[in-house]
Simulated assay, not measured.
Amino acid sequence: MNMTATIAGPPEKATATGQAATVEFRGLRREFGSTVALDGLDLAVRPGELLALLGPSGCGKTTALRVLAGFEQHDAGAVLVDGQDVTRVPAHRRDAGMVFQSYSLFPHLNAVDNVAFGLRMRKVSTGKRRERAAELLDLVGLGDQGGRFPHQLSGGQQQRVALARALALRPRVLLLDEPLSALDAKVRLTLREEIRRLQQELGITTLFVTHDQEEALSMADRVAVMRAGKLEQCAPPAELYGRPATAFVAEFVGTMSRIPGRLHGTTVEVLGRRLPVDGQAPATPEVDVLVRPEAVHVAADEHGDARVLAAAFLGAATRLTVRLADGTEVKADLPTHEAAALGVGTTVRVSLPDRPVLVAER
């Protein structure tokens, strides 16, 4: 069952200065026996924003969401909503709605009654709760499906019903726990656009847990990348991709190649030239330079020391896999019309643009 708020008012539009809440995790720690799920997590969510929690399995992102929802108790730290510690507030009184990966609809109730269930628990009259449920189903594009039962709906439609149910009591915080992962690719794309549209229209503070970086980057105002229970970086998608704070973020978000280099103070020697180092450099002189595929330049050169191994058509761009003289494999994205002249086996020269690069320990 989804966790909903105790507000009995109609589903009105939220605003960043009224309905939408601030959420803050302060030094949050949660242990399961010898496993540390959250290790001093510090993170603040702004009113009305959609913040994605992104990271590999076991990084603590779902645990953080469940602690905020009240389904898990943390061992140390605090969870604040609008500046108030909600540690001792039970789940059903936390002004939040939650949508799960598994839909969690009641099979014996039709769509209208599933959406209206929380309102029934709050003793809202039958007429009012059915009217409100119908309005919410219309909001999520299912206005004509209210009489259908879960088994009569597609996976995407069931998830829309679950979303409407989470919104039924006008929560100030919406929690989404990998709600799209069980859907096929086309439905997932459509529904993530719909969720984003609704979230912006309602102005509701939203935490979205996902392991899918494309989902996070395309939907969120900011993305918080987690690793081993800690926050690695929290930033808008473009900044996270273009200016990753750590080597882990750089390699987890998007595609990244490692090219051997050697440090010389604040510069690094790589592919026969010196480039400035972006951020703090490791203590060891032997490092790897981290580069995105779109930053790698590849040109045919019969005297070059690299060779094209493979080409993957991506539409407007083609991704080449190039092997350097030392055996290092590098990904490079080129316009498809340019890559057409660089077939597998072509001898090429690889270079990087004259701009700062991120380096990591080898």
Rank of each mutant, 00 (worst) to 15 (best):
R307E: 15
V79W: 08
A340S: 14
H108A: 02
T210C: 12
M3A: 13
L271V: 10
T206W: 02
R362Y: 12
S102H: 13
K128W: 01
D354R: 05
Q158V: 02
V277C: 03
E131G: 14
A91C: 00
L334C: 00
A5V: 08
K13F: 01
L169I: 08
V99L: 00
L198P: 10
A283V: 05
R227G: 00
G40E: 09
A310E: 12
T6C: 09
V112F: 09
S257Y: 11
A312S: 15
L314N: 01
V270M: 06
A295F: 09
A133K: 03
P260L: 12
Q73W: 02
T205Y: 07
M3R: 10
D326V: 14
L240Q: 03
V268R: 12
E31F: 13
T87Q: 07
P293K: 15
R30F: 03
V81E: 05
F71D: 05
E294C: 01
L38P: 04
N2C: 08
A164S: 06
E239Q: 12
R197I: 10
E361C: 08
S257F: 09
L174V: 07
A16P: 00
L137C: 00
M121Q: 14
E286Y: 04
G127R: 03
G141A: 09
G141Y: 11
A316P: 13
L174D: 03
V115E: 04
H264D: 13
E294M: 14
E72P: 03
A69F: 02
A341R: 13
D326L: 14
L309F: 11
L53W: 07
E193N: 14
A281L: 05
Q73C: 01
T87A: 13
V45K: 01
L54P: 10
F252N: 10
A235S: 08
P171A: 06
